[in-house]
Design a protein around this nucleic acid. Structure first.
Lengths: 182, 182
DNA sequence: GGGTACATGTAATCAGTTACATGATTTA
DNA sequence: TAAATCATGTAACTGATTACATGTACCC
């Protein structure tokens, strides 16, 4: 098996995407990612073009190139690729969750903001998370029947997250409006 | 005011930390970060040494260097620095929340895992989030009186998050054990 | 006075991002 | 047939990470 230490999380994401939908092109991955995993683990489409090239070199993916027209590259997973993926899936995931949320970060530094900026922040965060919540619910309605259990499970936790955060910002908005430094 | 477009989120984190605790050394920031913001927005300590240097060059921070012993650099914020910080705080935070959680990612690809690996994943995630929850509660008990409102608010949402996620993984564990691909 | 943990940095690398660029297909 | 949009890439840059390195203080 190739040197697996050089694989990044992105590599495994690509391996996983290919494994699930093969044969698949970079563009199709991009489209899939945009309405699933990309909600909580985003990355630019350029990686979905660059990474498979590396994985082919490592022998973890194979490719078929169209001879005419768009000359699409369709990727499929190899035996080694499958092995690498399932080994990764069998390793414990010890890292602490990262929640990169600019709103939360700004709230953390709230002491240095003017009150009306804080109110604006809370209000805007409340609205946008409410919108995300609606988006997730719509997405669930749209794909609920076709997607697999575990993908749905991540959508479910995303939904719960947005519900919780929406409520949180509503409370913060109240407190910020009250001028509370209580 | 200096060219503010060249500031990254990290820059503002450092500005905010200095603003809150000045005068402060890189090491003290590191220690503070480790038990607050670092839980949801982590970065290596090397940035807490490198970034202030840039900010001093930009005139957003000032520094005092000890002449003897450790020759610590103590940073404080300048007027320009304060202005940059509060301007950032007044801008809307539009980006979608990123939740970088390896466990969730692996769950998303759960179809390709063996059942016992999924059970192990769910079990381990359940335990570790439960532990994080306890850590947050202990932290709250320890700093509840001294920390400021908005920092406490981020601790509060962290706690709610861990509570929610712990419950989520308990459910997943059940389903994984049931062999559900339902 | 020797070991160990605390403290303070820096250099090199590289993954990920940004920006650019162009081709193919559809639609009006 | 022109415009718009969909699709497919690549090159360059750089912020963040990794790894290294050393100094200082404390403790046994």
């Amino acid at each position: 098996m190739p040197d697996v230490r050089r694989l990044t999380t992105t590599s495994y994401v690509v391996l996983g995407l290919v494994a699930a939908r093969q044969p698949i092109t970079s563009y199709e991955m991009k489209r899939d990612v945009a309405r699933s995993i990309g909600y909580f683990w985003p990355f630019p489409h350029s990686q979905l073009y660059a990474e498979p090239v590396r994985l082919v070199q490592l022998g973890l993916l194979g490719e078929d190139v169209e001879q005419t027209g768009r000359k699409r590259r369709r990727y499929h997973i190899t035996t080694d690729g499958h092995e690498a993926l399932s080994q990764w899936l069998s390793e414990p995931a010890n890292e602490h969750t990262e929640i990169r949320d600019l709103g939360m970060l700004k709230l953390f530094f709230g002491t240095h903001a003017r009150q009306d900026d804080l109110v604006a922040l809370a209000s805007q965060q409340h609205q946008s998370h409410q919108q995300h919540l609606r988006d997730y619910e719509a997405l669930h309605a749209a794909v609920g029947h076709s997607a697999n259990t575990w993908e749905l499970a991540t959508l479910e936790i995303g939904t719960r997250f947005e519900r919780m955060v929406t409520e949180f910002w509503a409370e913060i908005l109240d407190r910020a409006r009250g001028g509370a430094q209580v």
